[in-house]
Design a protein around this nucleic acid. Structure first.
Lengths: 231, 231
DNA sequence: TCAAAAGTGTTCGCTATACACCCATGG
DNA sequence: CCATGGGTGTATAGCGAACACTTTTGA
């Protein structure tokens, strides 16, 4: 392969996409981190990310990162902020278009491809490389905000879930506590849930507990009319 | 000046900042547009923008654009989305970090520096250059969303304003109609407004009408407690 | 004198909230 | 048998929405 170079009349920054991947294990919100194998910040944890290719947009790049780390072809991925502070990478000027992804932990094959990738509960995230601490804080803030406009919680749960799981998820994201009965009442009243007639078949299902799934048809209809999720 | 070039092992995109500048004339929301003097899209209107310098972050770049077009040194400027579609500029790969700015039309000196700059009421914005139509739609959506979390409306009004002006602004942004009495009641109840004791001195003030100003101390206190503006 | 706009208060209905009891499951 | 957790209903208070009349100003 020939040694190719690219020259410009003006300096151009590097552009990367980073992907904050959120999952939910039924109790806690988790993020997927990668341990860096090279300097700078060798050995520290960071979000998956990489250079944006010249023929893909940021969303596509973030999806590619997601696929490389989780094997998932599709997921909820949303751009939330671009970090452009001149000193954020000690090597050269790097601008990163940050996204967050919401994935179902149940959809991910048990063994991760990359040995250096690991899920961390949000409360146990160590100090991160680059400005990724700031990126995580910003991602959480955006997630909390987005949940008022879109029922994004369902992206993190299995197809079929209990009311308790849904409530725990909302409480994890928003860092608040809801009354169990009021939460269920409000949720059911919104009309976004379909109750399963029979218990779903799975190893961990409980008897006598209602299972629900997200009713995206009703959601589409409600979105047309313009609605807000008040929590 | 020597002819300098910048060489990279991999292709790098150009990075620009664009700035959607919103103003409010008391009746309608307006945006500042620039008529392009060169190809591509020569003669069409577009948002002010330009290349990000290597020593400034995106916010600083957007503020610089704002200053160059309006003379304002400070204003509310917020990054809202990065547009990275590969074909969005026909010349080369250009990624733009888009911001919106909220300015007080009363603070802007009458004569614009650039003859090719003009304010357009939102409803009269022509078809724009590049993907700026999409940028405008996205900016409006973000503005509508942001207004639920921050009292950004006040950035667009003069220091001193009437309840009617405030209501018209909210109605312009959200494209809804409020009952005059309920709006005033809710606004006053929030505690973000301070009523002016006496009529402010100005050419356009009306007698017998209450004037208010934004009480940012109360706002800071409320923000601590976490609150939401419900409209 | 009349039209237009601003100030003000009440009523009603909904919904958020607080709260208790019963039942099924599993140890 | 007991502990744990889930299912369900009710009472209250506060807020949002609908609504009318009076006053002032300016044409």
């Amino acid at each position: 392969m020939e040694q190719q170079v690219f020259t410009y009349k003006y300096p151009h920054p590097s552009v990367t996409t980073d992907c904050v991947i959120f999952g939910f294990d039924g109790t806690q919100l988790q993020v997927l981190l990668i341990q860096r194998g090279i300097e700078p910040f060798k050995g520290q944890w960071a979000f998956p990310g990489g250079f944006l290719r010249m023929d893909e947009d940021a969303q596509t790049g973030a999806l590619r990162e997601l696929r490389e780390e989780t094997g998932l072809e599709t997921a909820y991925v949303k751009q939330f902020h671009t970090f452009s502070s001149p000193g954020r990478d000690p090597r050269e000027r790097v601008i990163t278009i940050a996204h967050y992804a919401l994935v179902r932990l149940t959809d991910i094959s048990a063994g991760d491809d990359a040995a250096e990738a690991r899920w961390f509960p949000l409360a146990e995230v160590p100090q991160l490389a680059f400005d990724h601490d700031l990126i995580l804080r910003t991602a959480m803030a955006e997630l909390r905000r987005q949940i008022h406009f879109e029922p994004i919680g369902f992206e993190l749960l299995p197809e079929c879930f209990t009311m308790r799981e849904l409530q725990t998820l909302y409480e994890s994201i928003l860092d608040v506590h809801f009354d169990r009965r009021n939460f269920a009442k409000k949720m059911l009243h919104l009309g976004l849930l379909t109750q399963e007639e029979c218990q779903p078949e799975g190893q961990n299902t409980k008897q006598g507990v209602n299972y629900y799934r997200f009713n995206s048809l009703n959601y589409q209809a409600l979105k047309q009319k313009g609605f807000r999720l008040e929590f």
